[in-house]
Nucleic acid binder design. Sequence first.
DNA 1: CATCAAATATGATGACCGTCATACTTAATA
DNA 2: TATTAAGTATGACGGTCATCATATTTGATG
Lengths: 184, 184
Amino acid sequence: MEVAIRKFMRYPVEETAAKHERIVKEASRLFRERGFENVSVGEVMKAAGLTHGAFYAHFGSKEELQTAAVAYGQKVSLGRAQRSKSNKKSKGSFADRYLSQWHRDNPGDGCTMAALAQEVARSTPELKAAFEQGLEEILPAIGGERKEAIFQAAAMIGGVVLARAVQSPRLSDEILWSVRQELG
Amino acid sequence: MEVAIRKFMRYPVEETAAKHERIVKEASRLFRERGFENVSVGEVMKAAGLTHGAFYAHFGSKEELQTAAVAYGQKVSLGRAQRSKSNKKSKGSFADRYLSQWHRDNPGDGCTMAALAQEVARSTPELKAAFEQGLEEILPAIGGERKEAIFQAAAMIGGVVLARAVQSPRLSDEILWSVRQELG
DNA sequence: CATCAAATATGATGACCGTCATACTTAATA
DNA sequence: TATTAAGTATGACGGTCATCATATTTGATG
């Protein structure tokens, strides 16, 4: 995002930026898999191939990382939604992919909203703002009237959230299927 | 639930049961307000008017308390849904009440699923089973074809979850309104 | 009234974690 | 090549928390 202009940068700029992005990327994945509270800063850094001490050269706090991770995750989701929309032959398949068993079983590579919305709701204004901006950008990619797009987003997110929270695979599948049916 | 038959019960049975219920009730409220991870056992016990040490006379672990709290919260929601259904004059007002500003702003007295589903999804089979049983009981109270009930539940839960996660009150209201409109 | 175990209170213990202090490493600049 | 500050690593600190150990209190029973 913002690259400060400095006289001396003894470490290559692009390498530092790459590390920064790797931290955010791994954080985003881990947070989506296990939630903010169940992932430590040290764990994120290890996943990024660094030690915990280096963290504070990149972020001011864990909260800042959470915000960056949510913003990143929303960007990824936006790209997927836009690709789904522009892809003519896959008309209507965005909901199918969203409400798939694969998405349900792989939160770490799935929608940030379906994984972290409730934790975001209890967090800082900055985090909620990052979440909101992502949602606002995704809504047009869903298409149709804004009111309908919001409704469809709510139903899809609610469907995946419910499907992940129940115990029986049978019911979980039924939830995904039901929401797909009613949306289609 | 299960009251063991013992020769000696030096503390009055009903008082112990009342304390037990108070612990679950306060836990349910606190968990819905701030999530499992952000509420300590000691805090729950203090809210119930006891000290932390007494906790393990009532529950084997915090996880057990979480399960009991979710089961309790689901029962409360079931009661509300059933009352809404039997109340003829308030036809269709269940969704209105569910998607209200009041519900959004008072998670501690609101739907357990809209508050804790994502944390439940990452938790134990027992917890997911308690969540699931609650959902299964609530679905008939929503009414209509089962497929539709599931869809409506997903949309309503998703709507409240989204409304709570965004920063702008304007957008939050719009989400509640949009889902209400499309469901009506 | 003495006894008993259930329930409670107080106080540890051990683990985890966010953050900071400090020293070291890096490679572009002068 | 010496210098510089960005970036990294190691280690520590302080706090929180779930859980357990231990002692105390309770009140129905004998």
